[in-house]
Design a binder for these strands. Structure first.
Lengths: 220, 220
DNA sequence: TAGATTGTTAATCGATTAACAATC
DNA sequence: TAGATTGTTAATCGATTAACAATC
């Protein structure tokens, strides 16, 4: 299956970077920006920014550029960031704990709604004001609160089962830190954070002494 | 600038996923695999795997498929994973500590060569047998040991300066967890890990109830 | 008005997929 | 030999870039 219309996924993946850059501009007190200036900051061409935005509407003024505050608001609106998204965090090892403590989520529309781990020794432990609960509780909480987003930070060997059960409980988008490809039913989004793979793709070039500036790679 | 020939970067970024999948196959005792079977496991088409591999040589046997052990060895060789890569880790907050403690690196050719932080209160603290050193020490160690890979886990506001100084010291590839786009000179590779941006790109679909299975996105 | 910059169309570029001869 | 699967070429698909009329 693949979505019926709408902007390409690459474009959707770039929007958050535009939003972030606009936030920084605002912090610097810059209220107006051209596609060129915005592009320079994030190593994206001006044409690409304009094209990307054109999928969603018209946001600029010829001869002037974009009102930073307004464009930011509009992109956040498009991304659904006017609401707060509760997220279930599964797997509270070192990484899970770091994620739980990270302030960058809360500030940007993401609320860690619960910490869950299957290790009984961890259950009850409090991190940043949140108490670690069992994985069974996760399934209950997801159902009860209608949570649709989850972050998986469990070992690779348990990731698939965790994903299966999360989806069963109602999760529709998963960000997985586990180094394994998940199989999920249609209707569920999965994205990965994979530092080892990224490092390995760079050692390829280092091993050959191939110099590069890889621009135009939002994320990756 | 952009590299003079060679396989496309997308292909290089998929190789580590192939390698990992082959490692899992080996663990399962599977010694032979077809492009179709391998592809099914990681949601990539058989054609893509064969095409990708063809940039580097011929590794399979018609009618048979690939010898898992041999192909894995060859991909690891291509990626430069026959050697161990020392990595400087900068920024030892919660995330940096989790990275320092992560065993997945060591197991896969990545050796954390040193922990560095600019906060004097942290210097001297020992994590997993490694002592946190000052950032000035990082510059010295990078030079002395010829380190070319670094992981940045500092706050966004200091990431650019850290990157500048790392590059000055000799770093040629950076994996950054800081939510900001780095400007680096030609000849330096930069990749990002950006969970907030990823989550925001998924809230786009959740907000619209657009169902999806996003395959063919190694990493993302 | 003149200069700047948008939104959009068309051209280009690059990546993925399909198809199949070669061959194990 | 018959069946399976590779490596590769050609076709397709999609994304990026260039260019420019519209217009602030």
């Amino acid at each position: 299956m693949d979505r019926m219309e709408g902007p390409p996924d690459v474009v959707v993946r770039r929007l958050p970077l535009y939003a972030r850059s606009l936030r920084y501009l605002l912090q610097e007190g810059i209220e107006s920006v051209s596609s060129q200036e915005l592009g320079d900051r994030i190593n994206v061409t001006a044409a690409q920014i304009r094209k990307d935005l054109s999928y969603f509407g018209e946001f600029g003024k010829q001869g002037i550029g974009y009102d930073v505050r307004k464009l930011l608001q509009q992109i956040e609106d498009i991304l659904g960031l006017t609401q707060e998204w509760p997220v279930a965090l599964i797997g509270i090892g070192h990484l899970g704990e770091a994620i739980a403590r990270y302030e960058g989520f809360r500030q940007q529309g993401i609320r860690i709604a619960g910490l869950f781990d299957s290790n009984p020794a961890k259950i009850g432990k409090v991190i940043d004001g949140m108490t670690i609960q069992s994985f069974e509780e996760a399934e209950r909480v997801i159902r009860e609160q209608g949570i649709r987003l989850a972050i998986i930070a469990v070992p690779a060997r348990s990731a698939q089962e965790v994903a299966d059960r999360l989806v069963m409980a109602g999760v529709r988008a998963i960000l997985s830190y586990a180094p394994t490809v998940l199989q999920v039913p249609e209707g569920v989004w999965v994205r990965y954070i994979d530092p080892v793979a990224i490092l390995h793709s760079m050692t390829y070039y280092l091993a050959r002494d191939i110099a590069g500036v890889r621009h135009n790679n939002p994320e990756t």
